[in-house]
Design a protein around this nucleic acid. Structure first.
Lengths: 215, 215
DNA sequence: GCTAGGTAAATTGTATCCAATATCCGTGAT
DNA sequence: ATCACGGATATTGGATACAATTTACCTAGC
């Protein structure tokens, strides 16, 4: 399986996400196109197109003639995002349970295992990625592509803070347990339990993350 | 109140929306950048940046090295969009009722009147715009900007078909009545009634629109 | 007649260059 | 001392030119 050659804008987009995720670009900071383009070794055009994507996702704010700025997340924004996630993930999980097959369960169990493995290494970026794969594999089962797209946007908006969350060992341990519970609930085809555990999982997350923002 | 000079990409974005809305660009059709840029009298750069916005909104699909295509909406997509709207608008209306002031009610009544006026003229584009203003004025009262943003995306995705919907006189009459009911429910500060009427309003809409797509 | 390969045309992707705009700083007037 | 005005500078916005990729068509071979 050879990987297709990506366009420059796609590469730049991936790089930008990492920069934002790792905090190399801090929230509120202006993104100086010339400097970044040179740093990435590309011209400004693909960089700008990548920024437009992030603008659409709300990851950066755009002011005409002034430029792009990394989006800031107030404590109010954070709660709004999690409230919306609660609504939409409930829908996604409910639909997912209706569609789930034995094969899907195996796949998801496999992804849970990968989260565990990443957690063992302690690399925050790897944990974040594995965690995302796990959850979105479930959401995808809803077979509601637009719903999944909206969820991705909401997750992206808080990724920066979630990585801080993963930095704490106690959080990491709890996550693994909760993932197991989610898996159990899905195996039992229980909508109520699946949704409940997702809610718990999220509530724990928002509590820790808001502590980070407040602090 | 003088209007700021818009950047070219903003103008192009507005033009593109109209093109899609009016069906000058048909769903599924490729957007040939050179031709459109010439038609608009601009270079391809601002056109591409506008397209990237629409890509983020899901209004167009992008395939690297092949270009942008106007998004198609299957009957399944339509139902998904309306299902998501139901979830999110319920939340928005609930929050709105909690925040609404006398002043807000006057503003919304005024917007309802504008819809009525636009309906009298019969210009579909004007009706669409007025209708949007009315509904989003309500959603904005939720003071949940991200929620409003998601709703805008969902509305945009189906605007093409909604304009067909407005073309029928019977639909237009019913809309006006339903707007009045919504206004009454808001005045009474009733969450239950406000949500119920929004649901009714939407259900009538989806029924007509799906008839259009199916037919 | 049908398939495979290769070449040409069309279209998109990127880089470079120039124009337009906002911001910053200094000067002068009140 | 403070505010208003103006020009210099930095940064973004847009146009043009060129490179890369895909697609379609045509030819050769089976």
């Amino acid at each position: 399986m050879n990987t297709k050659p990506l366009t420059t804008q796609e590469e730049v987009l991936a790089l930008l996400r990492v920069e934002i995720l790792t905090g190399a670009l801090n929230p509120g900071q202006q993104i100086v196109q010339d400097a970044l383009a040179e740093k990435f070794g590309v011209s400004r055009v693909p960089l700008r197109e990548a920024l437009k994507i992030l603008e659409g996702e709300g990851q950066v704010a755009y002011h005409p003639h002034r430029g792009y700025f990394v989006a800031e997340l107030s404590i109010g924004d954070l709660h709004e995002v999690y409230r919306l996630r609660a609504l939409l993930e409930c829908e996604a999980v409910t639909a997912a349970v209706a569609n789930i097959t034995e094969r899907d369960l195996l796949t998801i169990a496999e992804l849970a295992k990968k989260v565990r493995k990443a957690t063992a290494t302690g690399e925050v970026l790897a944990i974040t990625a594995a965690n995302r794969s796990f959850h979105f594999a479930i959401f995808e089962l809803s077979e509601m592509p637009r719903l999944v797209r909206l969820l991705r946007q909401l997750w992206d908006a808080t990724d920066v803070y979630r990585s801080v969350y993963f930095a704490h060992a106690t959080n990491r341990d709890r996550i693994l347990l909760e993932h197991d519970e989610i898996l159990n609930a899905l195996s039992a085809r229980s909508v109520a339990l699946s949704v409940r555990w997702h809610d718990t999982h999220r509530d724990n997350s928002v509590a820790s993350v808001s502590a980070v923002i407040a602090g």
